[in-house]
Amino acid sequence: MKRVVAVTAALSIIGFIIYVMAAGFGTDPHEVPFMMKNKPAPNFIIKRLDKEGQINLADYKGKPVVLNFWATWCQPCKVEQPVLDWAAQTYGDKAVFIGIVFEDTEQNTRSFLQQNGAVYAQVFDPRSTVAVDYAVSGVPETYFINRQGIIVKKYIYPFQSPAQFTEQIQEILE
């Protein structure tokens, strides 16, 4: 009897461990949890790079904001650039688009923008402090902020088609 109990206990522990490890298969061990969802977007006042002046996020209260974190050395960022340019032209009247460069040098960014032009506002985060405030965990990452200044979601992949972007932006346009 005692032995049956012991064996059953051992087998159930084994089953549990195997189950837990098997559950790990689908998941990405590098994924970082995102807790800023449904929290107010941290404010920032930083220098523009596409033209003179500064951007104060608080000025856009009442408008939906699309905030794209990127860097010049990041290849996938270049992949999604045409999609974001298209989106800024398509949704530019309904939402504010801000590109924010971090983990980069100002010089790199300026020459990159000179070569490629900027369709929407581009700002520079020299010490990545805004990125830390927003809990950025990779690049590129796109944050969607609603009219009330609440972060609705973030998209951690590069946009590869206009359809992908359209699907993501709907929620903050309502």
């Binding site: 087998l11 461990i17 195997i18 490890m21």
Partner: peptide, 19 residues
């Protein structure tokens, strides 16, 4: 997955053997 199956077999085999 192949490894996990092997771990499961080893654990069950060892437990039963000891039992």
């Amino acid at each position: 997955p192949t490894f996990l199956v092997f771990i499961g077999v080893l654990l069950v085999f060892s437990t039963l053997l000891l039992a």
